Simulated scan of single mutants.
Amino acid sequence: MYDSDHGITTGAVARRLGVSPTTVRSWDRRYGIGPLDRGDGRHRRWTPADVAMLEEMCRLTASGVPPAEAARTVRRVRASPDALPVNPGVPASAAPDAPSVGAGPEPPSAARRSGAGSGLPLGDVRQECRGLARAAMRLDAPAVEELLRAALAEYGLVTSWEEIMAPTLHAVGKKWESSDDRYVEVEHLLSWHVSTALRRTAAAAPAATSQAPPVVLACVPSEQHTLPLEALAAGLAERGLPLRMFGASVPAEALDAAVRRSGPVAVALWSQARSTANHALALHVARTAFGVRGARSAPLVVLAGPGWRGPALAPGTVRPAGLREALAVISRLYGEDAGAG
């Protein structure tokens, strides 16, 4: 509740916006977007108009606008006769007129910014990465969901994964590794929403009608990273290709049984690190033949992920460079246009 005479505290504002009180104070100190009336003792007390200004700041930074530029925008609006609409009951991430991801005519490979702003080691990446990173660092789940939805709608699955989702996930992982296990909650929240967006993409695709053998997707034993396989599954679903997803850390015996029972045209094995890559298992799968005598066949093994780097490729295996190439390789096995979808 607002106190009509004194406003609300910085802590209450931070809880409403889904950011830390330190962030709110930093915006005030660095960018001059604090409350107009500080009251006695210079304690910050935020009126509904002040909170509306911060909500606009959150909306802009969540869409990828650098904080300094966003602050200049909200200061201009506050100084103009037409003030920001005051609606303190609506959180910034739920505002109906939030700017959409990637608005404007720029092609997918454009709109890169090299400046800092999210606190993550992003480097020279798309502006949408910075917006997604800032929303994740604030634990702003509605904003993360909306940014992912808008990116997929505008750029499609492959570009969204390769240029927005994967770089942001990588940056969050690096931040966690370099900060004494801090920000684990950020990685979990972002991973959950990326997984949800990928599965929604797969669910929205038309059901596969082909009677051809499926593609088997599995993580090698001891491998827990499933998001890249979920992206591949969504891409295959978009193309109407049959698939069987087995998820994380599939035991070797279970993988062998799945391959023999389903008779796949291809088996995609994900390995995130060299410590989990099992080349003997991959070779075993590539040599697994099935079908009637005289017409037996074996699956193509798609070695997916950075863990497979190093040794020369064994017969019956391929090592695509990324999602786009993996989809092209598998599509050709079905006689499909490699650029479809």
Rank of each mutant, 00 (worst) to 15 (best):
K174S: 11
E177N: 04
A312Q: 13
P251L: 04
A197K: 03
G240R: 00
L36G: 15
P81C: 06
S178Q: 12
V184N: 08
G119R: 02
A143F: 01
A328H: 02
P251Q: 02
D140V: 06
W27N: 07
E187D: 15
G32K: 08
M245L: 15
H284K: 15
L232N: 03
P66E: 10
V13Q: 09
S93N: 04
A286Y: 10
V250M: 11
L60T: 08
V267P: 03
A49Q: 13
G115K: 08
L169W: 09
P221F: 02
E336S: 13
G117R: 08
H170C: 12
A234T: 02
G18P: 10
V144P: 04
P107D: 01
A248G: 04
S109D: 14
P206Q: 11
L60S: 08
P108A: 10
A257Y: 10
P96I: 00
V215N: 02
Y155Q: 03
V216G: 05
A141T: 14
A135W: 07
G18E: 09
L241G: 05
V329K: 10
L269P: 00
L323H: 03
I330G: 06
A94N: 13
P121V: 07
R332N: 12
T317D: 03
A314M: 12
R332T: 14
A49I: 08
V329A: 10
R296F: 05
A136T: 11
R75K: 13
R309A: 14
V144Y: 06
V90P: 01
R287D: 14
V77D: 11
E325S: 11
A312P: 10
T23R: 08
G341R: 01
L269H: 02
S63W: 00
E56R: 15
R182F: 07
R182W: 09
R29C: 00
S20K: 09
H279S: 10
A205C: 03
S118M: 11
N87L: 14
A273F: 13
E128R: 04
A205W: 07
A326N: 08
A248N: 00
R149P: 05
S249R: 14
R296C: 03
V74S: 01
R199P: 01
R15K: 11
D140G: 04
S275R: 13
V267K: 03
A136C: 04
A218P: 00
S118R: 10
H170G: 14
E128F: 02
P67N: 09
Y2S: 05
V292T: 14
A151M: 04
A49T: 09
A110M: 00
T276V: 13
L120N: 04
V215T: 12
L236N: 07
T10L: 05
P242T: 07
A340C: 12
A273E: 13
V184E: 12
A340E: 12
E238A: 10
W192K: 14
V144Q: 08
L132W: 03
L327T: 05
S178I: 04
W27C: 06
T61Y: 06
R149C: 11
K175Y: 09
T196V: 14
R200Q: 15
V65A: 07
S297P: 03
L229V: 01
P242I: 08
T47E: 13
T317M: 03
A98L: 13
G123Q: 08
D3F: 06
A205I: 05
V265P: 02
D28T: 10
R76D: 13
A231Y: 06
D5Q: 15
R200P: 02
A328D: 09
R113S: 14
V318M: 00
